[in-house]
Amino acid sequence: LTGPRNIPLSALMQCKYPLARKVKERIADIRAKEREGVYQRSLFAPEAKPEISFDNGFVFADDMFVGVRTYRGSYRFSKHFTGWDQIPAFDGADDGEELNCAKMLDSLPEVKHWIRNVPRHPSAFWLPTASGKFYPDFVAELTDGRILVVEYKGAHLTDAADTDEKRAIGALWEKASGSKGLFLMAEKQVDGKDVRGQMLAKVR
Rank of each mutant, 00 (worst) to 15 (best):
F90W: 09
Q86N: 14
V59E: 13
Q40M: 15
H121N: 08
P122Y: 01
F44H: 13
Y39F: 15
V59D: 04
G37E: 08
H113E: 02
N56F: 02
I115P: 02
C101H: 01
E98M: 13
G96H: 10
T70K: 14
D55L: 09
E47V: 12
A93C: 12
F54T: 10
I30L: 12
L43T: 07
A93K: 14
K79H: 03
V111D: 01
L43R: 10
A124T: 06
I52C: 05
P119D: 06
V118G: 04
G67N: 03
M104A: 12
I87Q: 02
K112M: 09
F44Q: 09
M104P: 02
E110D: 11
G132S: 05
I87N: 02
A45S: 15
W114A: 04
G37F: 11
G67E: 01
H113V: 12
G96V: 11
C101E: 03
V111F: 03
A48L: 15
I30E: 02
F138Q: 03
S131G: 07
K33C: 05
A61E: 07
T70M: 11
L43I: 06
P122A: 01
P128Y: 00
F65S: 03
Y135I: 03
P128V: 00
D62K: 15
S74W: 05
S123F: 03
S53Q: 11
D85K: 10
W84Q: 09
R72Y: 02
D95C: 07
F58R: 03
I87G: 01
K33E: 06
F90T: 05
V38C: 10
F134Q: 03
R116G: 04
A45E: 12
K112G: 05
N117F: 10
L127D: 00
E51G: 07
G132M: 03
D62V: 12
S107Y: 02
G96N: 09
P128S: 00
Y75S: 06
R76D: 00
D62Y: 14
D29Q: 14
A130V: 04
F58P: 01
G73F: 09
P119E: 04
F44K: 13
N117M: 08
F125W: 04
K79A: 02
D91V: 14
D55C: 05
A124I: 02
V38L: 12
A48P: 03
A61D: 08
V38N: 07
G67F: 08
E34V: 15
Q40K: 15
G57S: 03
S53K: 13
L99V: 15
S78W: 12
D55W: 07
M64L: 06
S107H: 05
W114C: 10
T129L: 00
F77C: 08
L127G: 01
E110C: 07
N100A: 11
F54G: 09
F65I: 10
V59A: 11
R41N: 08
A89E: 05
P122L: 00
F90N: 06
C101N: 06
P136D: 06
H121F: 01
I115L: 13
N117Q: 04
E34I: 15
W126D: 00
P136H: 05
F60Q: 09
Y71T: 07
D137K: 09
E34W: 12
A124L: 08
L99N: 01
D106N: 10
L105F: 04
T129I: 00
F58T: 03
A45L: 14
L108D: 01
A130Y: 13
P136V: 13
F138W: 04
A130D: 13
F77N: 01
L127V: 04
A93M: 14
R76P: 06
G67M: 08
A130P: 12
T70S: 10
M104S: 07
